[in-house]
Design a protein around this nucleic acid. Sequence first.
DNA 1: ATCCTCCCCTAC
DNA 2: TAAGGTAGGGGAGGAT
Length: 889
Amino acid sequence: MLSFFIKKFQLCYRNIVYKLKQGMLLFFKLGIVHSVVIVLFESRAFSHGLPVVKPDWIADSIAANTLLSWVPYQLVEHAVTETSKQLKLSAFFSEKGISRSHHQGILIQNETSLSDKCKGESTELTLSGTDNFSQENSQESKHIDTNDELKDVKSESEEDCSTSYVAGKSSDHLNRPHSTLTDPNFVENYFKYSRLHFIGTWRNRYRKRFFNFLSGTGSKNNNPNNDTENLRRIVIHIDMDCFFVSVVIRNFPDLLDKPVAVCHSNNPKGTAEISSANYPARSYGIKAGMFVRDAKARCPHLTIFSYDFSAYEEVADQFYSILHKHCKKVQAVSCDEAFLAVSLSLNDNPENIAEIIRKEIFETTRCTASAGIGENMLLARLATKSAKPNGQCFIPLDKVNEYLDKLPISALPGVGYNVEEKLRMKEVETCSQLRTISKDVLQKDLGSKMGDMLWNYCRGIDHSAVEAVQETKSIGAEVNWGVRFKDSKDSENFLMNLCKEVSLRLHGCGVQGRTITLKVKVRKKGAGEPVKYMGCGDCETISRSLTVPGAINDVGSLHRIAKQTFASFHLDVKEVRGVGLKLSRLELDNPSRKGIEESRLELLFSSATRKGKQPVEQSCSTNHSREDAPSGARPSSSSAVSQGSNISELPPLSHIDLDVVRNLPPEIFLEMNGLYKGELRKILESQQQEKEYNSESVERKDCRQQDQEISTRMQRELEPSEASCSKSNYCKSDLMPGSLSQVDFSILENLPDEVRTDILKQLPPHRVENQFPESSKSNLSLGSHSKWFEMLRVQNCLLSEFLLSNATFLTPNISPSSEEWDAIVVNSCEFMKEYIRQKIESDIEELYNCFRLLKRLSSKSSLLLEFYDRTLPLLQASIGEHYGGKLHL
DNA sequence: ATCCTCCCCTAC
DNA sequence: TAAGGTAGGGGAGGAT
């Protein structure tokens, strides 16, 4: 069996082994699903935290003709964090359409190491194995059988005193305290494991995706009937039931009626926070946010699952696909919750559509969703509360008052702990009581807007509309866990990483910001170590913002400002417990100039003023910390520039790109002009005259070419110098590899061409060989499938690379079901069929990449959606034929 | 009166 | 051990 396995392995992954031997870093993990080895390339965008091992593991395993433990081959930089990560191999392959979480299907005792688990699983394959491998592992298999197998899940409820933990769990000895003190990549790792980060980012992600959907060609249920008189608007609010738990147990129906919770760790200390609990668990009083130890005290036989972020993503994608199928106007609230605006004729029963959607969600995801239906968003949202779990509720207009009468005010959106307390003081606990308070009084007590809103809400009035597209007003990142600094070097390093993170997010959204806000949490006087391990505990929060004249999103500027603002707080860094950086007053990144300008500016400034360009405008409003920052400590616009000492470090005037200079914000231009003692302005003026003199036939393209030449020249001249080394901190290449984990590929695809190209250049070379000349793009999708091959051959690239570089081009605006449309689809499908045939044995990774990309892109274009829908079965059939099983995308 | 900054609160 | 984020809205109070 083993030799069969190895043979198959060699056959399938020859080329990968070849790449491995070239020293490429791969991460992979063996998973036994129809005897297939799964290998993914090391790219955090794909790894999702799986263990990363050195390539030798594969080669050595083959040489030894046995499956060696991967542990000694694990990459050091990942060893600490990655091993504790749950296994998500199962997310890659799944069985006959059922995406089973194999790893999660096995109950692991805390002591069971990951490698044991690998072997234990492997034995599933070698049922009648006679080789060393299976014998060697049969004992372990027993061990797992007796303790940990899935069947124990069934009997587990009888073992009342043991709490089960379901997840990949590493050897504990590999785990070390995780904080800013011990992990140089803390920021990056932190976001990878933070559930709140995922919750926070997902909302935007689905909003963004829906925006793409709208701007693409297809949108259904657009109610072609404009005769609105016979229609009524209804709002449906759909919310998945205890999402995090439902998803991880969706393949274990036996657990449905057992108490289950999701959290990071099942350590005996029990200071991990429960993130989500299912309804049986809630019946014991277990709630999100509760410590595990408290939850266990209430329910000793609670089953605890680890997070499975990739599964959440998968289900959320399915969820939104279904919603978009049924409704044009979908407002994403979070990964598992959305509002739909539907128009119905007077005779239609609004409950029917909710019923259909919920049914489809369940059939697709095997997770239940609840729905609330009402005349407005407020009523729909409230109705959902009554509907949960797994139900739906319609509040017709004539029942609104009756429904609201007994409703506690805390159920109203916007009423949190504080507002509830304020109103409780006035002996107001229900909506009917709230109605007795006049609007004036409410506004006086709670502020004008809040008072107005609540006055409306308790009467069932809500004028807000379901908005599919919402403008992003701020982008930021913060960390309030694990933050411990011993000196200013630590804090500075942390700030730099945070800036990289924020910069990447800004780039990902194609925006820049003018106002930079730094928020710091400082241990409150007298507050001891927090109850929560590495938590921030009782803190005082201080924040300060700064508005610059020109919007920024580059790491260099962010770091300069963040560093300076942080310094202005005059804090004892040992007391800092959390830091956040946020940008607001966002502006769209100028895609046409941005890439070039930015790099030149970086070059200019890193060379010219290594001390840093100072912000020109700074505002600092009163708060308690203002007194400790004497105004003298604040930079003024002129102080920074007037230091003539910088002049010796300036690049010669001949090296300055005047086009860039011309486009600088006036303040910065003045600053630079000052540095060059007025020479800049003179040159610009004389150039302008020259330009006017020359004919105006200079093509834009030529300008761009010149720009590039100048920029390249500058780069060449600066590269070997010290200046470029000092600048390397700010280079994109420096922030790319690590932080790519934070980039949603859908975002990457949405980036302006130049920015995307820039980012792609930072990826391993085999992924980005080519950019396509304009000529090769035209009419490509219209051509026969042989043209595609010709194109790929000529460009010497992979299809996935082409897709990635040409995301924009690939979403043409062609009307569905036209002849053109059909021709494209047929041709493309033919091409894909052939491409699959060519790659299925030699490069399964490429096929995986292609279909992942297509999946993403298909949300933008109904053409691509149709292409994807048609070709996916071909791929799956081929996978099934060659390997058995199914590729899980 | 209006804008801005620094908070706080809320929701997921 | 554990991963307490993100973003919007709005109020208080100061600056203009």
